[in-house]
Structures are given as structure tokens and as C-alpha cells.
Amino acid sequence: MTPEAVFFVLFALGAVGGSAGVLLSRQPINSAISLVVSFFFLAGLYVLLSAHFLAVLQILVYAGAIMVLFVFVLMLLNLRSGELGRGKLTVTRLLGVGFAGASCYVLASSMLGSSVAGTRLWGGSVPAQFGTVRPLGLRLMTEYVLPFEMASVLLLVGIVGAVVVAKRRL
């Protein structure tokens, strides 16, 4: 195996393991920590895909900002163990898992059937500045300027909405 493949397997196992930890752990705080672990491994996968800027963004925004928000709310609510709850294995849940397995099959088969799925990735074929700040910023400010501004409006709406929803009395 090439070093690239070794790192891919390592990061993939980490990402899947972290996500499974979110699903399986009993305490929500453990779920949050597992999710942070999963995000770090995903950032490693982005580096393997030469998406350097997105890898940094993943750690800064996801593992940094969003997860701090989650952990903050978990600490704020201070759940007692009676409120955690762990359901029994019901028919509905089995149906849910079966449905999810079917959707995984459909997703994987449709994506693996795409024309680029067999494309082999290696470092030599990637343009020099691929995935760094400069080309992304240039495209964001020219070709994708409207979505970029819409994202800023969306974040503004998010800020105002969070204040309006969470405040007891305005």
C-alpha cells in the first residue's frame, strides 16, 4: 500500500469510528467529543484530497465554533441522568436501521456508478495552487459572489433568529 492509501484507511476508520461513537454513546457529552474526533479525521481526509483551505475551515468552524456551541448548550442545560433516556429495541427502530442500510446501498451504488468514480488520485496531476486560499477567494469574489453574499445574509438571519428564539422576553 502507498502511504496515501495507509493514511486514507487511517482517517476513514477514525471518521467512521467517531461518527459511530456519536450514535452509540450514552451521554450526550461523549457524543459531542466523538463528533469532534470525527471532524478532525475528516479534516485529514480533506488534506489528502488537496483541499487545504477546507481542512483548516473544518477545524476552525466545525471543531472550533459549532462544537463549542453544542458543548455550551449541553453544559447550560445540565441534563440529569433521568432525562438522557435509552430506548429499547423496537420494531420502528429495526425498520429505521433497515431503511438506512437500503439508503446506504442506493447512495453508494449510484455514486460509485458515476463516471469519475474510477479516477485514480495522485499528487502529480493536481494544479499547483489547487484548494489554497487564493484561487478559492478569487472564485468566491467573482463567479460565486451572489451565493457568498447570500451566505452572509443567511448568517445574519441566523444571529437575529437565535436571539429572538432563545430570549425569554424581548
Binding site: 496515501e4 486514507f8 471518521a15 467512521v16 446506504c104 455514486m111 460509485l112 488520485l121
Partner: peptide, 17 residues
Amino acid sequence: TIPVGWYLALSAVLFTI
């Protein structure tokens, strides 16, 4: 080297989780 399909399969697995 790695085919893109590996990443897509991993993406499908994560989505399912």
C-alpha cells in the same frame, strides 16, 4: 493510488450513520 470511489463509499457510509 486511491480511486475517488473510496471517498464516495466512505461518504455514503457516514451519511448512513
